[in-house]
Design a protein around this nucleic acid. Structure first.
Lengths: 227, 227
DNA sequence: CCTACCGATCGGTAGG
DNA sequence: CCTACCGATCGGTAGG
């Protein structure tokens, strides 16, 4: 069923290159210069996303995450109340960035593209970027670790997901009306997102198709030419 | 991105109905009657599949699994050398059953159906059954816990997956030749399986579409009528 | 953000 | 397959 992808056995506790060295030691906490605090938090989220994606949420210890940013065992809890809150932060940050990125992609192309098929191409291409672009670990974590968040956390994410999916709806409706998309729109959307999201499992940036080729294939698979 | 699905918070340690009561207490092990041993092993695999699916591999303890079949803490290790071997057994058993089921589905329909689109319908419908049918936890576990198996284990599964996918290839090729499938065949196969496999994340047997309706939608989405 | 630590859980094993 | 147990790991906290 198309489910390969090597298990990265991981160098266990290798800290990010040089990060530990750059850590300002005796600095008083919470000075006027808040950049430091904010950066540390963002570093934690980024490192957590990377580890959660590679090893899974349960298999990643908070000690792993701390080590990745050059902190000691208990220090992540200074920034996040619990490991679960950190996971949620990864997902939220991922959705926030994805929504913004999609906005920009649509805005940039709106000058040239107005036909539904072109818009779908933009949406799909951007979605592949969000899923498979270098350093984009946030959304894959959200997609594959949703079991580990609470109902309340899931609710706030659902709102963001609705925001993300909103621009797709009119495009799919238009394609359906013109006969370029035959299937039931709601089921088509679910199946389409599945096809795209699953690419996380098999896509390898180093070999095989490019994201553009992937987009072409998806578009050819899902839509037909105007009758 | 279409990623809801409620988290089954689970009744924690409710044993299978009556299983514990039926356990033969003082029976000597390994008598001529080997049925018992085989059944216990199969029970473990089934219970493990159910728990692995609901809570994830890492979040499921071997104690959970033991309790689910009315065993004590260490007893699963009498049947399986390690938790990882048990996971692998779940996946293997799932693939074995899926392959057999697919064989039968193709055989049964071969009398009536010879056109590629009809065959694809049979394959997709059967795949939905394998993924979403009642009690079918094995394949979802394989799809979503592959990170937790070793490279060697993955290799044996890859062989089975190849066996499972084999009948799809000529069907997709034929559809491509006739113009009913436009996209590149290899990428189309990967995207299609993604669309189907992802249904595990959102499909709810109790509401919404039936597996037949799902199959229709997938077929309409992926293929076009003969030109 | 570090130090030092606690309580709980877990995979697995010996020995019957 | 049970009993009893070990060593390791983990999330989280107090106190500075």
């Amino acid at each position: 069923m198309d489910q390969p992808a090597a298990r990265h056995t991981a160098p266990a506790t290798a800290p990010e290159s040089g990060v530990a060295a750059r850590r300002p030691r005796g600095r008083p906490r919470k000075t006027v210069d808040e950049r430091d605090d904010g950066n540390r938090r963002a570093e934690l989220v980024r490192a957590a996303a990377k580890l959660f994606r590679r090893k899974g949420f349960d298999a990643t210890s908070t000690r792993d995450i701390a080590a990745a940013v050059g902190m000691r065992n208990g220090s992540p809890f200074y920034h996040f109340k619990s490991k679960g809150v950190l996971l949620h932060a990864v997902m939220q940050e991922g959705m926030r960035a994805a929504i913004e990125r999609q906005h920009e992609a649509l805005h940039q192309s709106e000058q040239q593209t107005t036909n539904p098929r072109g818009l779908l191409a933009v949406l799909i291409r951007n979605h592949f970027d969000v899923l498979l672009g270098p350093g984009n670990d946030f959304i894959p974590v959200m997609l594959y670790e949703s079991r580990s968040i609470t109902a309340r956390q899931r609710a706030t994410l659902a709102a963001l997901q609705g925001e993300y999916e909103a621009p797709w709806e009119p495009v799919l409706q238009a394609l359906h009306r013109s006969g370029q998309l035959q299937a039931d729109v709601k089921l088509a959307r679910l199946l389409m997102f599945g096809a795209l999201n699953w690419s996380v499992q098999w896509f390898d940036r180093r070999k095989g198709a490019s994201l553009d080729e992937l987009t072409d294939a998806a578009l050819a698979l899902f839509t037909r030419d105007l009758p």
